[in-house]
């Protein structure tokens, strides 16, 4: 039984421009001890997907099963029980900590809410976790604004680890950090994964980070997964034209410059193109693509692509 299994998940919002189909039919599995990377451009719905998995946003349709239990139907009380096991690390280390609480208060609240230990035990747990993420012990008496971005992200990681979760949704955990700090945080996340036996759903727009960090990668475009494969396969044999374009667009010092691989902008999720969602920007689009939405199908074991011409691309 997989740790997390999401089937046909849809999250739609009403907005001024009409119905926003942020997440529009997603299947996803995270096995125990696995890191699944979710890649896509801003506006593709990857953050909404992450928040829906935690039920911070309610899904419109579909099911989210955590350890076999459907959490889409849980009421608030039972949800609280599940939330101990699924945690989240946020992108913006400046916005994700309450500026008016000390680090000690920020870290104690989850333990109080979930009735973990008495005062002394809680102190002990906090001191442990603070040391684990590499912060000095006296940090607990300070306020978030006294820390640098990288240190705040460490605090965010400490908070996510407090309740001994099994799955952590990392929503762009290093995008807001300077390059020299990113490696520190990625290494910390890896150490914590090993130590606590965690699984990650790792959301990022940065392909090179996902390339290093994930076991399996899913590429998302306009609310749907367009390609999914294990890490090595995806980078060596990408089959969806969008995946290829994303890879080519990442500037790489070791390679001469090419023309921008994709023209145009991401269409609005309130006005999703008919047929294949990608046909408005796809260099290979045909009439078939404009009319029929391709099925998300396996072209090799563990390698699925949503493209009519996946077999012909290589």
């Amino acid at each position: 039984m997989p740790l997390l299994s999401v089937s046909d998940l849809k999250t739609h919002y009403k907005s001024r421009d009409g119905l926003l189909r942020a997440v529009d039919g997603i299947d996803l599995v995270v096995e125990r001890g696995e890191t699944v990377g979710l890649v896509g451009e801003s506006g593709c719905g990857k953050s909404t997907l992450g928040k829906t998995v935690l039920r911070l946003v309610d899904p419109t349709a579909g099911h989210i099963e955590f350890k076999g239990e459907d959490i889409t139907v849980l009421d608030q009380r039972n949800l609280q029980r599940v939330r101990r096991s699924i945690q989240m690390i946020f992108q913006d280390p400046y916005a994700s900590l309450n500026p008016r609480q000390t680090i000690g208060e920020i870290l104690e609240a989850p333990l109080v809410v979930h009735k973990v230990g008495d005062r002394t035990e809680r102190r002990q747990i906090i001191a442990n976790i603070v040391a684990k993420v590499g912060l000095p012990a006296e940090s607990i008496n300070r306020y978030p604004h006294e820390f640098s971005g990288g240190q705040r992200q460490r605090i965010g990681i400490a908070r996510a680890l407090l309740l001994n979760p099994e799955l952590i949704v990392c929503d762009e955990p290093v995008s807001a950090l300077d390059l020299s700090i990113q490696a520190q945080i990625l290494n910390l996340l890896l150490e914590m994964k090993k130590e606590f036996g965690l699984s990650y759903l790792f959301i990022s727009h940065d392909l090179s980070v996902v390339r290093y960090f994930a076991d399996r990668v899913m590429v998302m475009y306009l609310g749907r997964i367009v390609e999914s494969a294990d890490n090595a396969t995806l980078w060596s044999d990408p089959r969806h034209p969008y995946t290829r374009a994303l890879m080519e667009a990442v500037p790489d010092p070791s390679r001469p410059r090419q023309a921008a691989p994709l023209g145009g902008d991401l269409p609005s999720p309130s006005d999703i193109p008919s047929g294949c969602r990608f046909h408005t920007r796809c260099p290979l689009a045909t009439d078939l693509c404009r009319a029929d939405e391709p099925e998300f199908r396996a072209i090799a074991p563990g390698h699925q692509v949503a493209c009519h011409f996946a077999d012909r691309i290589n």
Binding site: K51, L56, R83, A95, S96, L97, P99, Q101, V113
Partner: peptide, 26 residues
Amino acid sequence: EKDFVMAARSLGYGHARIIFREILPN
């Protein structure tokens, strides 16, 4: 809409705690 309120919700805090401890001081 701030992330720290999202974080509080993801940690399973109750409404009263979020209103009075997380949001109100800010």
